[in-house]
Design a protein around this nucleic acid. Structure first.
Length: 471
DNA sequence: CTATGGCACGGATT
DNA sequence: AATCCGTGCCATAG
């Protein structure tokens, strides 16, 4: 901790670089913990309260005018800016009235307060106490252990009331809270998402009828039972894994301390969100890079002042804090800056992909992006790693998908196969793609097929819907 | 003989 | 420096 010798110099460049790199890799969930730890340990750091843009109601993470609103409406280019973390939930007017939100965001209890604040407007006065009781009874995973009847008795409420409030809570921001277990949490999240993703219907059936098998990844067995294609089941499972979270209480407040159950089915709240710009043209997007904490960090000016006034006796102790604080702030700014520039390029180059789906992903390498924004390619690599992004249609995908060379081809292959009149061999698929200007090796088609769970031509006979029934 | 899956090499990523 | 991914070559199933 104390490295008193180093302080004479300013070896900040290397330390700066190292820390920036390490921060860059962190997703918001973990960055948040990191920031809170730093705040607690360093009195020179200060968390300044967030501001809310008066016109568009967005929470701003930086000083200065709101970038989403200060742009002229005629500008159709993408708008990329930093916004205070608030995950996939659009700003609601009711939040603004209850302005003092998580100022001290660490305490797990505040998850309840956070949800309660959202519900405040819609909640009948007589249900308020009930909601508070339920939220207080949630366990760490966000589940409610007690059966509704028990709650009703404990709070002198009717079962109808309890059910209604439970439903409201389950639809609130970390969706799926106050459900009895992972399965119900996932189903509640499906209802909230309600996008038009084709995998959604099957996902719902799987949760309903084959939840245990899903946990064991027995896709073939599920396909059998539901009379569906194994490929479709696999995709639905993928959708569940990417977009839903079986432990709604954990994802929200960071998984740092929990043993995180080796369950890979945990999604992070997005670190970035892209929405359509209602004021701009059809291709105008708003990109919000969420800050990890509400408000913005700076070196406490009072602390700096106090140090200047204090005698020399104390100042060494404090200057260490001061240096660390300003270093930390700089690193954070650098991280934000890098991510912001990265997103500018991604949105500019991949608008089609964002708006129209996997097929339209342009081939893009991290190296090219690195050259474009003038950083080392490993920097881009770190900026992309471990981050997730919410697309306008509600899908939440890892940021690295933007660099997946095979995505568009795999998507095309899926389509070709579903539309084929007779089973096409890998070589024939190669030819089709060739004619479309896409050059891939035959061997690669085989690999992609495997990835998508598509059977080889020999084994996939006719139609797609229900092919696996007879014994 | 043809369509696929296994193994290994070379470039890209981390 | 370690690892991942697209490909080419080869053995094998049908």
């Amino acid at each position: 901790m104390l490295q008193s010798q180093d302080q004479s110099l300013r070896p900040l460049t290397t330390a700066h670089l190292a820390q920036t790199m390490s921060l860059l890799t962190l997703p918001n969930q973990e960055l948040r913990d990191r920031i809170l730890a730093e705040l607690a340990a360093n009195p020179a750091l200060e968390l300044v309260e967030e501001r809310i843009c008066p016109t568009c109601k967005r929470r701003l993470a930086n000083p200065g005018p709101c970038p989403a609103c200060s742009r002229p409406a005629s500008d159709d280019g993408p708008i990329v800016f930093l916004s205070a973390r608030d995950s996939a939930r659009p700003a609601r007017s009711s939040d603004l009235d209850e302005a003092p939100l998580d100022r001290e965001p660490a305490a797990p209890e505040s998850l309840g307060e956070y949800v309660l604040a959202q519900l405040a407007a819609d909640l009948r006065p007589e249900d308020r106490r009930l909601a508070a009781y339920i939220l207080a009874s949630l366990d760490d995973d966000g589940f409610i252990q007690d059966p509704p009847a028990f709650i009703a008795r404990a709070t002198h409420s009717t079962l109808e009331q309890v059910d209604r409030v439970l439903k409201m809570i389950a639809r609130a921001d970390p969706p799926g809270l106050a459900t009895p277990g992972p399965r119900e949490a996932l189903m509640a999240q499906l209802d909230v998402l309600g996008s038009d993703d084709p995998r959604l219907a099957l996902a719902r059936r799987i949760l309903n009828e084959a939840f245990a098998e899903l946990g064991r990844r027995e896709f073939e067995r599920i396909a059998d039972r539901l009379q569906a294609r194994a490929e479709a089941v696999r995709q639905a499972a993928e959708y569940i894994r990417d977009n839903l979270n079986p432990y709604p209480g954990r994802a929200f407040w960071g998984s740092g301390r929990h043993p995180v159950s080796a369950d890979p089915n945990v999604y992070h709240n997005p670190d970035i969100q892209i929405t359509l710009n209602p004021n701009g043209g059809p291709a105008s997007l708003i990109v919000e890079v969420f800050a990890a904490v509400s408000g913005w960090l700076r070196v406490n000016p009072l602390f700096r002042q106090a140090m200047a006034q204090a005698g020399e006796g104390r100042s060494e102790d404090w200057s260490g804090d001061l240096d660390r604080a300003s270093l930390f702030v700089k690193c954070l700014q650098q991280r934000n800056n890098t991510v912001r520039r990265l997103m500018e390029i991604l949105v500019a180059g991949q608008a089609e992909f964002i708006l129209r789906g996997d097929r339209f992903l342009q081939p893009l390498t991290r190296a090219r992006v690195a050259a474009e924004i003038g950083v080392h390619e490993s920097t881009v690599s770190r900026a992309v790693a471990h981050k997730s992004i919410a697309l306008p249609d509600g899908r939440i995908i890892p940021l690295s998908k933007f660099f997946d060379r095979s995505l568009s081809v795999r998507d095309r292959i899926k389509e070709i196969v579903t539309q084929e009149a007779r089973p096409l061999t890998d070589d024939e698929i190669v030819e089709i793609l060739e004619r479309e200007g896409v050059q891939v090796a035959r061997r690669t088609i085989a690999k992609y097929r495997a990835m998508e769970g598509i059977l080889p031509a020999r084994l996939r006979h006719r139609k797609q819907p229900a092919a696996a029934a007879p014994a």
